[in-house]
Write a protein that binds this DNA or RNA. Structure first.
Lengths: 267, 267
DNA sequence: AAGGCAAAGTGATAATAATCAATTTTCCAT
DNA sequence: ATGGAAAATTGATTATTATCACTTTGCCTT
């Protein structure tokens, strides 16, 4: 087993999978491979988890005094493009897709926000309408912070404004990387990158020692990769045939991360 | 002549064009049509001109104390993706392309910055390397502000940090619009939007009463629209044949803005 | 456990766009 | 004004992707 910059971790164990019709046992090596050193995942991920890390309790208290705990069921819309923002959302638990729908009803997923991330702040900060929509990809818990409280604390906290500036300018990196691959690279490579990114998202909350399972509809995967469902399905089959992924129903796991990275043709 | 929300301005006059081989006279109506109300150009344009508008003289003075005036010839590179930033650039005069080049040498233009705009601030604010490169599209004058001075003034100016937050979150709107069209719309529509955006850029400095002339290489236009030069050329011919644009050498002007907007299929 | 419905997958075809290989035009520097 | 190089354009062909029509599978409710 070739060690790649000392970053690979190997879990040797038997794992039981549940199948709908019957149950069976798979004995296999599973690699929970770290991307560090082989793929610049940070260039595809926002940093919004860090915004309130070690944040002064006093400021946090003031900001969240009137905050509401909210629950969204899978599929529910949190806010809609064009709507007027009334606050920001802290994602306590769950995954949310940020997306745009064009006049031909085509949906483009811009970003998948994960547990611990902030959403809805762009519109509040720009004093514009929501530039995109947000919907729960799974059951979610969020903390809604009214914009007045957020903006008041922001106005008096150089720490917060500094962190937001850093975060937003990092987002520029992520978004320009997206633009470049969407404008220049074929669907196969875009899908490969999509799966690498999704795999990282699904690491969170994935049972320890189990292979990382991507659980998302084909439509969402296609809308994230910027292609049609049919084309995404065909490419997934190709990945499966060449041993890069395994699937079970809608679930996908990447069995050969290095090959997936090679397929993405990125860097 | 149908008046469109009272926004159309009509200049009636004869204009002399220069041609290389021979000179000839074109007598024609030219429309310097405003996009207000018919195309959301603000969703395709950053706002960085406004950052230092009515900025306290004291702060401006402190920030620009060690600033350098620099000149860049057409084609010269101002900074390169991956480089370590040492300051930000205020574009006093000229146009600059922000772009990325992938490992297959394909170039994607992310944005064209115009006179009065700032560039190079993302990397300084995120404390990362430059996420893209910048090159002069025409002879440029820039004011280079060392990052230490910029950051010091930023740390003590809520006005500046507020404006930057607003600007950066607006950029999110622009970039996500780009992602959506690159991922979902065909080259014809992307080129139409590119030409609408470029026409606005070239309004600045265009002689009063003259038709707005886009003067850019076919390669740059293609790299901005996210297609190949050949495909861009063919689509330009199509636009020409259907009376949406006129060309003279590399120069392009949009003769029917409404038709161009319709061609873009946007909104 | 069955039935129904939504999601996933497949196949054939048409539309779009990239690539490769020219030719023509334009633009400078002299 | 002119020769030469770079840029623009065209044509033929191939590759990629979308679309449409359909079948199969998975999942949820009863």
């Amino acid at each position: 087993m070739q060690n790649y910059r000392g970053e690979r971790t190997v879990f040797l164990q038997s794992v039981t999978f549940r199948c709908d019709m019957n149950q069976f046992l798979v004995s296999k090596y599973f690699y929970a491979m770290s991307l560090r050193g082989i793929f610049p995942i940070d260039k595809w991920d926002f940093n919004s988890e860090s915004v309130f890390a070690n944040f002064p309790a006093e400021d946090y208290e003031e900001m969240t005094r009137y905050a509401r705990d909210e629950k969204y069921k899978k599929g529910q819309i949190i806010f809609r493009e064009g709507g007027i923002p009334s606050g920001i959302y802290y994602l306590v638990e769950g995954k949310v897709k940020k997306y745009k729908v064009d006049k031909f009803e085509k949906e483009q997923i811009i970003y998948v926000a994960n547990t611990g991330e902030l959403i809805g702040y762009h519109a509040v900060l720009s004093t514009e309408r929501y530039p995109d929509s947000a919907a729960a990809l799974e059951d979610c818990r969020v903390l809604f912070i009214p914009k007045e409280d957020f903006l008041r604390v922001l106005a008096q906290s150089p720490l917060l404004s500094g962190r937001l500036l850093k975060m937003l300018s990092h987002e520029f990196t992520v978004l320009t990387n997206n633009i470049t691959i969407f404008a220049q690279r074929p669907a196969r490579e875009r899908l490969a990158i999509t799966l690498i990114v999704l795999r990282e998202k699904f690491k969170k909350g994935n049972p320890e020692g189990q292979p990382i399972t991507i659980n998302m509809s084909r439509d969402d995967i296609a809308n994230m990769a910027g292609t049609t469902r049919e084309n995404a399905v065909r490419l997934l089959r190709e990945f499966k045939d060449s041993g890069i992924i395994e699937t079970q129903g809608r679930k996908i796991w990447v069995t050969d991360v290095k090959k997936m990275i090679a397929t993405s043709n990125y860097e």
